[in-house]
């Protein structure tokens, strides 16, 4: 990063007191301290997201570092039409994708089981679905989804972005995002059938 540019004397307000818009505006004017505050605010969350996509700690760390450098260099181009975090996540995902092979990826089949008997999970008690074991099975199944689907499901369901935000992060339309999301969820549901078939503890 370049040397810090000092702007007007700014009182060191606590993170939460200074709103994001003002931090972004200061960062756009070259205030590195303001940018660092934004980075501190979001880097852990971004690292978690990128870990869930890459499943590799080092790759997630590296992608966050690269994303922050790139974001600082390009903050002048951030127009504030989206949230800062959405913009940063888009950069982070592009960085993370660099290290992942994806050219050979085929569209995921829609596993809707039409005409077959759909297994009944409904008879399981509620606590099964809240158990750590079930959640670990969900996470393990997510890790195995093809990259584009894993990313869509991670952003929308695990990270709780809206459809519009997730689509924006990926630079795709909402319809495309919804299609990946639905196929991904259906594939996960099918994978979890095995979990219940094999017995869960």
């Amino acid at each position: 990063m370049t040397e810090a540019t000092l702007t007007a004397p700014s009182l060191p307000l606590p993170d939460t007191a200074e709103n994001e818009e003002r931090l972004v505006s200061r960062a756009r004017n070259g205030d590195e301290a303001a940018f660092n505050q934004l980075a501190d605010r979001y880097s852990t969350r971004l690292r978690r997201t990128l870990f869930r996509i890459t499943r590799d700690c080092d790759a997630a760390y590296d992608a966050v570092q690269e994303a922050l450098i790139r974001a600082w260099k390009n903050i002048g181009r951030f127009e504030g039409r989206s949230r800062f975090y959405t913009w940063l996540t888009r950069i982070g995902i592009n960085e993370a994708y660099r290290g992942l092979r994806r050219h050979s990826e085929e569209p995921l089949e829609m596993i809707d089981l039409v005409g077959e008997r759909v297994p009944d999970w409904g008879s399981q008690p509620d606590r099964v679905f809240e158990s750590r074991e079930f959640l670990q099975a969900v996470d393990a199944a997510l890790a195995e989804l093809p990259l584009d689907y894993r990313t869509a499901v991670t952003l929308r369901d695990v990270e709780g972005l809206s459809t519009a935000e997730a689509a924006e992060v990926l630079g795709i339309g909402e319809r495309a995002l919804k299609s990946r999301l639905h196929r991904g969820r259906m594939a996960l549901r099918a994978e979890l059938d095995h979990y219940f078939e094999e017995g869960y503890g």
Binding site: L113, D120, G122, F129, L135, V138, V158
Partner: peptide, 16 residues
Amino acid sequence: RMLKDLERTVEGLQAV
């Protein structure tokens, strides 16, 4: 059943 299972899956992802 599909709808219920899918809801459980999405709730699981949110909890993850």
